Computed example of a mutant assay.
Amino acid sequence: MTREILLVVHTGRQHNLGMAEKVAGQLIGSGMRLRVLAGEAPDLSPECYTEVVAPSSKAAEGTELVLVLGGDGTLLRAAELARVAGVPVFGVNLGRVGFLAGADFDALDEAVDAVIEGRYHVEERMTVDVTAWLDSRVLARTWALNEASVEKSSRERILDVVVEVDGHPVSAFGCDGVLCSTPTGSTAYAFSAGGPVIWPEVRALLVVPSNAHALFSRPLVVSQDSLLALEIDAQGHDAVLCCDGQRHFDLPAGARVEVVEGETPLRLVRLYDASFTDRLVRKFELPVHGWRGPGR
């Protein structure tokens, strides 16, 4: 049976085009079929693919995985295609293979060989499903791998919100925004906003206020089964819902955003087994000198 891969490329960088040609040659040479998205095909050499597909929900259907050549934004864009198709996504980020997926190979050839030989692991990452309402009218239905954020629409204004957990109000305050994050997102935007790092195997949701004007504005970690809601003051200003920095929706005053554990997780490729602790230390270049390990 012929193996197929969807190749997604950040074609705005010349370096990525060269990488795409190199990777495609190895994969096609091994007998694989490569799909590319219609919007990217004109920038790629015809030798880089065997089929051009529309960027629809069926783009990755029937493939083994989605291979991404680009940065975090490109991976998050491709993640939607992988999630819908139920296939894993593997990212090559800024010259470092599999950054989001936890790999640490400097040699691109080694990573491609691992894909060709099937020597990779797949792990599931929790997502969130997000719904925005105004009274009984649905404004948006979407999802996020890292976080859903509700933010003020203008720099000079304050966003007034009420945070709710499982149908009970927790606190109301003025702020720049509020983030509802997954464990995966705890090392992304939520981390920058002062939230804690949550290990991926911890099934939980994270709420992080951004620059809140309140005594009680600490990050909250709640159950994966919780329903988080953010209500925008009906007498206040409009806001913006942003998911993974990719999908944006305008929210009028009085809107309500609900966040729950996603029905469909995202599957990420890892090239080797390494603990999240080790990956965290590498990602943030944390100082661990002086560590002696468990006593013998």
Rank of each mutant, 00 (worst) to 15 (best):
S223D: 11
R256V: 13
L75M: 14
D109I: 11
V161D: 06
G293S: 12
L34Y: 04
F173A: 09
R13P: 13
V130P: 05
G86V: 09
V138Y: 01
C180G: 10
A140W: 08
D43P: 13
G174W: 09
K283T: 07
G12I: 14
L159R: 06
V178D: 11
G194N: 03
G12R: 14
D135E: 06
G245P: 05
F216R: 11
P294R: 10
R83F: 04
T277W: 08
L108E: 09
V202P: 04
N146Y: 02
E4G: 08
A59W: 05
Y120P: 00
L76T: 02
P183H: 03
R203W: 07
W199T: 15
V36G: 10
A20V: 07
Q235I: 11
P88K: 01
V197I: 15
A204R: 00
A148S: 14
D278T: 12
F249P: 09
W133G: 03
P196A: 04
A103I: 04
P209Q: 00
E263A: 12
G295T: 11
V66I: 07
G118L: 01
F191G: 02
A239C: 08
L271W: 00
P55Y: 01
R256T: 13
S136R: 10
S192C: 04
D244N: 11
A193F: 07
L241E: 08
A193N: 05
W143P: 07
V240M: 12
D106T: 10
G29D: 02
G245Q: 12
S186N: 03
G71P: 13
H10W: 14
A172F: 08
A144W: 07
A212K: 09
K22V: 15
W133S: 01
I158M: 07
V92R: 01
E201K: 14
G25S: 05
L37S: 04
V122W: 00
E151V: 15
G25Q: 08
N211E: 13
A41G: 08
A214L: 14
V170D: 08
N16G: 08
A59F: 04
V122H: 03
F216E: 08
V197D: 02
S149A: 14
D104N: 13
E64M: 08
T187E: 03
R83A: 01
V260T: 14
V66Y: 02
R141H: 05
A107S: 11
A140K: 06
L280D: 01
H237R: 14
L75Y: 12
V115L: 06
E117H: 10
A20D: 03
S30H: 05
Q246V: 06
G102K: 03
